[in-house]
Design a protein around this nucleic acid. Structure first.
Length: 710
DNA sequence: AGAAGGTCGTTTTTT
DNA sequence: ACGACCTTCT
C-alpha cells in the first residue's frame, strides 16, 4: 500500500494544519459541527435544533480558538447560568488542557458586574456598590412606597413585587412604563403618574445609596460604554472573541451588549434555537437571533440539524408539538436512532395517583439499571411538584429540585443576610427595616424613625449617640444589635466569622420568631455559615448569593455525598440545556401548561408551546406525559381538569395513551411504616419488603395491552 | 398610636 | 408558606 504524504496548503497560512492540533476536530464532529467549530474570524451564527450537539460544538470551538493561538484570558463566554459556564469550561479543559479555565465570562449579569466594579467611578458610583436581587429591589420599592403617600387613594396600588416587575419589564424590553401597563397591567393604567414618580424615586434612591439591581447591571454597563468611549474601547479590546450560548433568550439590552463587547475585534459566535426561546417574560425576544445577521452584516450562518439525543419517536412528538405554533420554525429534527418506545400519555385519577405512578416507574427504572440522576421529572411551575415531593420523601427516594425555593429566599436566611448587608452598606434602608423589626417592640413606625436617625442624624450608624430617645422596651436588644454590627463592620473580616457573630445574636430571635418549626430551619443556617467559608470577602459572598442563588434542596443532597446521585426534579425553565434518559412531564393540564396567565397576552400561547417542546426534547429514551383528571381546590372542592391543549390533537401513533389500573391485591393499603431504603444500595430479595407494595411492579398489569410500553 | 397576632387569599417561569 | 389586611392588645 502506498504511503501518503500530506502536503500543507500554502495558500492558507493562517489556517493551522490538522497535524498541529491535538484534537481531531474532523473525526470527532459531524461536518456541520466541524464547520462551526473551526470557522475563521468574524461573526458566526449557529442555529441549532434541540439535541444537535450545540454545547458540544461550542466547547470544541472554544478549544479550537485556544489551540489556534487565541489568548484564553481574552475569550468571553456568555451563558445563561453560572452552572452552564463552569460546565463548559470544565469540559473544554478536559478536551484540551487547563488553559480553557482562564476563559472569561459567566452570565451577562456577572460579567457586567466585573466591568462595573472596575469602572464604577465613571458612573458616579462607589466601588463597593451593592447588588440587589429581585426581592431586595422589591423591598426598597416598598420602603419608598411607605415614605411617599402612594396607595392612600381609593384605587388599589400594586404590590411591591408587581411594582418591581413592571419597572423591570420596561427596562428589559426597552419600553415606556405606559406601554408596559397597557400591555400587561391595564388595571393600573389610571395610576400611571404615581407609578412613574415611584420609578424615578427608585432610580434616584439606588444611585444615591450605591445600589444596583439586576437590570441596572446590564443597563448601566451600556450607559458606561455610551458615556465613555475610552472605557468601551478598553473593555471591548479585551474581548478578542465573544461566545454566546442560548442566544434566543437574550433581551434587547443583552443583544446591545454583545454588539458593544465585539465592537473592537468583531469576533462573535452565537448559538441558539428560535424554537426554544422561553424567557419572553423577562424581555427575551427570539427574533434577536434573526436580527443577528443585520447587526453583524458579514455574519456566517450555519445550521445543526441532526439530533443525537433522542429516539425518533420522541422527535416525532416534538415535531408535532412545535408544528402547532402560529409561527413556523424551520427545523424538522431527525435522528438515526430509529428504535424506541412511543412517548406515553398517562391520565391519572388524581394528583396522588399521578405521584404514585411516577414514583413507582422511577423505582422500576432504577432496578433496570437506570441511574436516578438520569431521570428527570419536569413541570411548569415549582408548586406542581409538591405532591410528588411528599411521595418521594415517603419512599426515601433522594432528589434535587431545581427551580424551587432558593436558600436566600427563605425568611430566616434573609434575616441573617440582612445583617451582613447593613454592615456592607449602612445606607441600605430595606435591610435595616428587616433587622430592626426582628426586635420585639419595634414595628414599622419605630423602625422608620430609627433608620432616619441612623442614616442621617448619627455620625456613625452603629454607635448609639447620647440623647436619642429609645424606649426601654427594646433598648437593650437594639444596643446588642449595634454591637454586633460594629463587630462585623470590617469588610475584610472573613465572612464565615461574620455569619457566626450574627448567628450568636440571632439565635434567640430565631427560636422565638419561628417557634413552631425552627428545628427544621436550623440546618439552613449552618449551611449558610459553611458556604460563607468559601469566600474571601463579604462583598463577594453577598453578590455571589444574589447572582447565583443556591437551590435549597441541592444543599440537603450535598451533605450526603456518597449516596447515589439523586433524581432530578426541575421546572422546565431550569432544565434548559440538560438531557435525561427518561423524562416525566407531570401536570400536563390546560391552565398549567399552557399557563392560564399566558392566555391574556399575544403570543403567550406560542411561548408555552415552546416550553412544552423544550420539555419533550430533554428526553433520550423514554418520555411520559401525565396529568391528573381531577384536582382539589379549597374554594371549589374537587373538579374535573382538562388535559393540555398541546396533546389534544396528537395522533395515537405518535403519543400513546396509557391507562393506569390498580392491582387487584389490596395494594392501595400502603405501607408508610416501611419505606423503601433506596440509599443503602443493597438489593432486597424479592418478596421481602414487597408484601404491601411491590416496588418492582407498577400498579397496573404490565401484560395488559394498555400497559406501559416496556 | 403603634405593635402583635390571627385570618384570609394566593402563588409562572429567573438573572 | 408568604404576604396583605384586619382585629385586638399594650
Amino acid at each position: 500500500m502506498a504511503r501518503r504524504i500530506v502536503l500543507r496548503s500554502e495558500e492558507e497560512p493562517d489556517r493551522p494544519s490538522s497535524e498541529d492540533l491535538t484534537i481531531d476536530y474532523e473525526g470527532e464532529l459531524n461536518p456541520q459541527q466541524h464547520a462551526a467549530a473551526t470557522a475563521g474570524d468574524g461573526s458566526l451564527l449557529i442555529v441549532a435544533g434541540a439535541g444537535t450537539g450545540k454545547t458540544r460544538t461550542l466547547i470544541y470551538r472554544l478549544a479550537y480558538l485556544v489551540e489556534t493561538g487565541t489568548d484564553p484570558g481574552r475569550i468571553v463566554l456568555l451563558t445563561f447560568t453560572r452552572r452552564a459556564a463552569n460546565d463548559m469550561t470544565a469540559r473544554a479543559a478536559q478536551l484540551l488542557d487547563g488553559r480553557c479555565e482562564q476563559v472569561q465570562g459567566g452570565t451577562f449579569h456577572a460579567f457586567c458586574l466585573q466591568v462595573l466594579r472596575r469602572h464604577a467611578p465613571a458612573l458616579d458610583l462607589p466601588r463597593n456598590f451593592t447588588v440587589l436581587d429581585a426581592a431586595d429591589a422589591a423591598d426598597v420599592i416598598s420602603v419608598l412606597r411607605a415614605r411617599g403617600d402612594y396607595g392612600d387613594g381609593e384605587e388599589r396600588f400594586p404590590q411591591k413585587k408587581t411594582l418591581y416587575s413592571m419597572f423591570s419589564a420596561a427596562t428589559n424590553r426597552d419600553e415606556t412604563l405606559r406601554e408596559v401597563l397597557t400591555r400587561r397591567y391595564p388595571q393600573y393604567t389610571g395610576q400611571l403618574d404615581a407609578l412613574k414618580q415611584l420609578r424615578t424615586e427608585f432610580r434616584q434612591y439606588k444611585q444615591a445609596h450605591g445600589m444596583l439591581d439586576f437590570d441596572d447591571l446590564l443597563e448601566r454597563t451600556l450607559e458606561l460604554f455610551d458615556t465613555d468611549d475610552e472605557i468601551r474601547r478598553q473593555v471591548a479590546g479585551r474581548c478578542r472573541h465573544v461566545l454566546v450560548d442560548e442566544y434566543q433568550d437574550t433581551n434587547a439590552l443583552q443583544a446591545a451588549l454583545v454588539k458593544q463587547f465585539a465592537s473592537v475585534h468583531g469576533n462573535v459566535t452565537v448559538v441558539g434555537d428560535d424554537a426554544q426561546s422561553i424567557y419572553r417574560f423577562r424581555g427575551a425576544d427570539f427574533r434577536n437571533i434573526f436580527r443577528f445577521p443585520d447587526e453583524f452584516p458579514n455574519a456566517e450562518v450555519l445550521k445543526l440539524e441532526q439530533n443525537y439525543r433522542s429516539t425518533q419517536p420522541i422527535l416525532d412528538l416534538a415535531n408535532h408539538v412545535i408544528d402547532q405554533a402560529d409561527r413556523s420554525y424551520e427545523k424538522e429534527l431527525f435522528s438515526e436512532n430509529e428504535e424506541g418506545d412511543l412517548p406515553a400519555l398517562v391520565p391519572a385519577a388524581d394528583g396522588e395517583m399521578e405521584s404514585r405512578f411516577v414514583a413507582q416507574m422511577i423505582m422500576r427504572l432504577r432496578e433496570d439499571g437506570v441511574s436516578l440522576s438520569d431521570i428527570a421529572v419536569l413541570f411548569r411551575s415549582s408548586h406542581n411538584a409538591y405532591d410528588l415531593e411528599v411521595e418521594l420523601n415517603r419512599r426515601n427516594i433522594p432528589f434535587v429540585k431545581y427551580g424551587g425555593m432558593k436558600l436566600n429566599e427563605a425568611a430566616h436566611i434573609k434575616d441573617v443576610l440582612a445583617h451582613l448587608k447593613v454592615a456592607e452598606n449602612p445606607q441600605d434602608a430595606a435591610s435595616w427595616n428587616r433587622i430592626l423589626q426582628l426586635i420585639h417592640g419595634i414595628g414599622p413606625k419605630t423602625a422608620q424613625d430609627l433608620i432616619e436617625w441612623t442614616t442621617e442624624a448619627a455620625d456613625d450608624p452603629f454607635v448609639p449617640g447620647d440623647g436619642t430617645p429609645f424606649s426601654s422596651r427594646y433598648v437593650s436588644r437594639l444596643k446588642e444589635l449595634l454591637g454586633v454590627l460594629r463587630s462585623i463592620r470590617d469588610p475584610d473580616m472573613p465572612p464565615s466569622e461574620q455569619v457566626e457573630a450574627v448567628l450568636d445574636y440571632y439565635q434567640p430571635i430565631f427560636e422565638e420568631e419561628y417557634a413552631e418549626d425552627y428545628p427544621k430551619r436550623e440546618p439552613d443556617l449552618d449551611h449558610l455559615a459553611g458556604l460563607a467559608a468559601n469566600y474571601q470577602s463579604r462583598q463577594r459572598f453577598l453578590e455571589s448569593l444574589a447572582l447565583d442563588p443556591i437551590e435549597l434542596t441541592a444543599l440537603d443532597q450535598e451533605a450526603a455525598e456518597d449516596d447515589e446521585p439523586p433524581l432530578v426534579l426541575s421546572t422546565i425553565h431550569s432544565a434548559k440545556g440538560l438531557e435525561f434518559h427518561t423524562v416525566f412531564l407531570i401536570r400536563a393540564l390546560d391552565g398549567t401548561i399552557p399557563s392560564r396567565h399566558a392566555l391574556r397576552e399575544d403570543d403567550g400561547i406560542d411561548e408555552e408551546l415552546r416550553l412544552f417542546y423544550v420539555a419533550c426534547t430533554r428526553a433520550e429514551q423514554n418520555l411520559f406525559i401525565s396529568y391528573p383528571m381531577t384536582q382539589y381546590r379549597r374554594s371549589y372542592g374537587e373538579y374535573m381538569t382538562d388535559p393540555s391543549r398541546f396533546v389534544d390533537d396528537i395522533p395515537e401513533k405518535v403519543l400513546e395513551p396509557v391507562r393506569l389500573v390498580e392491582e387487584d391485591a389490596p395494594e392501595a393499603v400502603e405501607a408508610p411504616d416501611e419505606p423503601e431504603q433506596l440509599t443503602d444500595g443493597t438489593h432486597r430479595p424479592d418478596g421481602d419488603a414487597n408484601k404491601a407494595e411491590p416496588p418492582s411492579r407498577p400498579n397496573h398489569d404490565p401484560s395488559d395491552a394498555d400497559g406501559l410500553p416496556f
